[in-house]
Amino acid sequence: MRLSATVLACLVSLGLAAPASAQSFPDRPITLVIPFAAGGSTDLVGRLIAEKMSEGLGQQVVVENKGGAGGNLGAAAVAKATPDGYTILMATVATHALNPAVYPNMPYDPIKDFAPISLLVTVPNVLVVHPSVPANNAQELIALLKANPGKYSYASSGNGSPLHLSGELFKTMAGVDLVHVPYKGAGPALVDVIGGQVPIMFDNLPSSTQHIRSGKLKGIAVTSPQRAATFPDMPALNEALPGYETYTWNALFAPAGTPPEAIKKLNEEANKAVNDPKVKEKLAEFSATVVASTPEELGKFAAAELAKWAPIVKQSGAKAD
């Protein structure tokens, strides 16, 4: 009888083991890989979300900036990481929609190698210039560039990046000649534009917001279809160039094969984080629009973005070095 009771106790113990393991996630820190240099829009959003997720998860979400190859290095590192939920990626339109069309040899498959978690926010871009540039709106800037072909340059976060393509689309639609100066990330590019080494840049609105407000940069136009709520007096670029629109987005992905219970927990806490009143207020200051999707919705969105941007990249002729 004692043996039967012992066996029964073991069976009960084994039966409880699996759910307990699932419920214990996470039991150690999580690494959030940001595939760009510190200081850019993705870094700002990522650190804000990581801090709030840490509170909800009861474990630290540690940010690791792993820039290079337009986001490919960081994204590839996550794609090849152990699929246990402890390494996740702050992805963008670059890592999951543009790079596959820009880079001839991708180190990962943007669909097959990742498990979607949540589409967090969408973010408009902004056309900024150094205060020394004698133009205060898009019409004046276009006239200046047409009068001085090849004289002015613009900075971007790298060849084939969303910011590079924003510039190339502008050149094509405005019919102007601008020299492209690629950097290894939006942060370093922005530093040189503020310093006056390069006069023009398309940036993500979050990372340029404080510099526009302080007067270190002049905001010429936002790239969203409508004016940004944070800068109601700044025109949308499509007011001068009808049909112009570019943007970026931030989403969380884990390596393919990550357990569903880990994905569920990460999705819940990520969506709680972006909907937290204080976080939402901070994101609104950057004109970031909160989405907070399901994993399934993000999967469909990523596939649609990939299909949308491929012909645009091809038309622009943008290629990575």
Rank of each mutant, 00 (worst) to 15 (best):
T246H: 14
I312C: 05
G219H: 07
P104D: 12
T230P: 01
T230V: 15
P131M: 00
H211W: 15
L16M: 14
N137R: 12
A303T: 14
N65L: 15
A240L: 11
S316A: 13
I88Y: 15
T248E: 09
A302G: 09
A292I: 01
V45L: 14
G187H: 02
A240I: 06
F253W: 12
V93F: 10
T294H: 02
P295Y: 02
E297Y: 11
T92S: 04
A18N: 07
V181G: 09
F231L: 09
G195R: 02
L241W: 04
K280G: 04
S293K: 09
A288S: 08
P104M: 05
G68T: 00
A307E: 15
V62K: 11
T209I: 02
S132C: 06
A189K: 03
G150R: 12
Q226H: 11
G39P: 00
K265A: 10
A50K: 00
F25Q: 07
F301K: 14
M106S: 05
P188V: 07
G219F: 03
G167H: 14
Y154C: 06
G317N: 05
I111W: 08
L144G: 01
L44K: 10
L48V: 11
N137P: 11
P277V: 00
V128E: 03
A81P: 05
A22D: 04
T92N: 06
K272D: 10
P107N: 05
P100F: 13
A147I: 05
K66Y: 13
L14T: 02
S153W: 12
A79Y: 02
L252W: 14
Q210K: 14
G299E: 14
L11Y: 07
Q315F: 07
E305Y: 10
Q197S: 14
M106L: 07
A251D: 08
S153G: 03
L57C: 03
L89C: 06
